[in-house]
Design a binder for these strands. Structure first.
Length: 295
DNA sequence: ATACCGACCTGTCAGC
DNA sequence: TGCTGACAGGTCGGTA
């Protein structure tokens, strides 16, 4: 489901709602598909930790956790401790002060901040109960999402599309024989671009998705670079694209889908020239373009 | 090294 | 009213 703008929206929503809050307890459901870290590892890292920050890296949500340096001697049980910050629920609390909770939403994942009485949706795989009374819930029908915890600083494999400089952008594609659409989807080149925004950026730049990446002129790449940054920023402003079931941390849909030029518009007229939008398959993914406006 | 392809899952919708 | 097949925002691992 979620690409850079959607993940950014969810991360901002989480930050706004639970930054500074402390995780009291964690419930983790059974899943056919593993979460990546084990349930025990996740619970050990999360329980008793304070959420310092929620942010986006590529298509990942990174939640920075802090833990009071429980200087060994007195470790109290989590329940009884009047209004101090973090309690240490485990006797052998991690030696690390800091940790990270990494969430990938896959195709259909969502991270919701709810009240405890909100009905529990089908396919809820994790519930973190916060000291404030709120709950953070990870819901993921298709189970392509992943949860992990780590002490290592998380790094995306590729460049951040909104931070990368133009020269660096050019060098990513210069030698690639693969179609430009495939190169845009390759997370080890750029992290965060998915099927919607690849199509939308190519449409705005006037470039056909099947064009070999290496065949793009510097001028083509400049238009693509500008278009990509612009479309991502606009989409973030509108809370992302809700094509079917994407919602943010508050359960709200995004609105960028009404601005799509090509994605999901097969057969509909191009907004500029009225030519029907075409759909082809590249590397197994639907790709949409206007055959007149994109060369 | 690089690049396709199917697999991983559930849900929905169109067509018969 | 089924049933079947195609398709869905993403990534992996195996294979060419």
């Amino acid at each position: 489901m979620p690409e850079l703008p959607e993940v950014e929206t969810v991360a901002r929503g989480l930050h706004k709602r639970v930054a500074g809050d402390v995780i009291d307890s964690v419930w983790i459901g059974q899943r056919k598909q593993p979460l990546k870290s084990s349930a025990d590892e996740i619970a050990a890292m999360l329980e008793g930790a304070k959420i310092a920050r929620a942010r986006r890296v590529g298509k990942h949500i990174v939640i920075d956790l802090e833990r009071e340096s429980a200087d060994s001697d007195e470790v109290q049980s989590q329940s009884q401790r009047p209004r101090t910050g973090v309690s240490a629920p485990h006797k052998h609390s991690a030696p690390h002060k800091q940790g990270q909770w990494i969430v990938h939403l896959g195709m259909t994942g969502s991270m919701l901040v709810t009240t405890p009485d909100a009905p529990i949706e089908k396919h809820t795989h994790l519930i973190a109960k916060m000291k404030s009374g709120k709950e953070v819930r990870f819901v993921d029908p298709r189970m392509f999402g992943k949860l992990a915890v780590t002490h290592e600083p998380f790094q995306a494999p590729g460049k951040e599309p909104l931070d990368v400089g133009f020269e660096s952008f050019v060098s990513l594609f210069r030698k690639r024989k693969t179609p430009i659409k495939s190169a845009l989807l390759n997370q080890s080149l750029l992290s965060g671009v998915g099927n919607i925004y690849a199509d939308e950026a190519l449409a705005r730049a006037g470039i056909r998705p099947r064009r070999q990446a290496a065949s793009l002129t510097r001028n083509d790449l400049k238009r693509l670079y500008d278009a990509l940054q612009k479309v991502l920023k606009e989409a973030i402003e509108l809370g992302g694209s809700s094509v079917s079931d994407y919602v943010d941390a508050d359960g709200e849909r995004g609105f960028f889908q009404i601005r799509h030029l090509v994605y999901g518009r097969e057969g509909e007229p191009c907004r500029k020239c009225k030519t029907p939008i075409k759909r082809i398959v590249i590397a197994g993914r639907s790709s949409h373009y206007c055959s007149k406006c994109q060369k």
